[in-house]
Design a protein around this nucleic acid. Structure first.
Lengths: 163, 163
DNA sequence: ACCTACCGGTTGACGTGTCAATGATGCTAA
DNA sequence: TTAGCATCATTGACACGTCAACCGGTAGGT
């Protein structure tokens, strides 16, 4: 940065004005990017990114079916979130739920034909949007840097004691 | 130079597996970062980042008051979003709304004493959290790179024809 | 056998966001 | 004057997310 960080890092309590500006740019731009991707997916395919994540996981599963808890773990969602979302997706006919024969109290989530088709139609435009809005917007070096930044931020997020 | 013809721009249509991996890391990590900041702010100050944005704007405004539409423009929100949010903040006593004398049909948004206090209590922990989770997680070079990445992504988002 | 504790999943309440429709009020043009 | 029309703000319907409570059932310890 500029001359604003002469002292050792640990001493300073608050971000400098320049750090804060970058922070805001960064967090607001990534949020806008997510939001743009979301609306692209919506208008291209009438799916949300949540729908897409669920359909992707089920598409890759054997028999295009998964237990609810396994699905939640796979896409990193809370169970209640998934339950709410599956309810909405079921209303729209994208998935189906049925009692699981093998596991008592377990719910099996199944892809319907409509779900398969919706996912098939969504994939290509979605990947193209990712390329246009992310990959093509950055230089190859910036893409690598983005990966490293994500890894560094993730490490901090996962660090113990960082509530 | 904005050559958006699909055929012309690089032959490749879709991101590579590695690009996709970085994309997912990047977008999920930034979302997790936002979410962590949000919950830190919530537990430190019982405010959401939306509350914080509104309180910040009002704090910096002359007389700690703004017209609703000016406030919406300032923080980049749709008016309906702001209206809903102000309703909730008003219920909690953080702000007050009153008819604007100068502009017909205009609503003036005022900071209450409770709002001033809540913002005052929130600021320091919030900035500290930004430093811990973002600034301190990255090297100075990575912070610069993050700013450049944000600028490049923003430029693409703002580019015409990129729906 | 009984009590308890967990496990898998659902539900309800509520905050948050978008979209479309609705007042309310001035401005402008026939 | 009046018929539109833009502007400012609100409202309602709905999608989405979290949190906490709940419920049915299985497993463990006594």
């Amino acid at each position: 940065m500029t001359e604003t960080t002469p002292a050792r890092r640990g001493g300073r309590k608050l971000p400098t004005a320049e750090e804060l500006r970058i922070w805001r740019d960064f967090i607001e731009t990534t949020a806008a990017l997510s939001s743009r991707l979301e609306s692209r997916l919506q208008s291209d395919s009438a799916l949300s990114t949540g729908d897409y994540a669920v359909l992707l996981a089920l598409s890759e599963a054997p028999d295009q079916a998964m237990r609810s808890s396994a699905l939640a773990a796979h896409i990193g969602w809370e169970r209640s979130r998934l339950s709410h979302h599956l309810g909405r997706m079921e209303r729209r006919g994208l998935i189906r739920r049925q009692e699981c024969a093998t596991v008592p109290r377990g719910a099996e989530v199944l892809l319907t034909a409509a779900g398969v088709e919706a996912f098939g139609n969504a994939t290509f435009p979605h990947l193209r949007a990712i390329r246009e809005l992310f990959v093509d917007a950055l230089t190859p070096e910036q893409i690598v840097a983005a990966g490293e930044i994500a890894a560094a931020l993730r490490a901090r997020l996962d660090a113990p004691g960082e509530g």
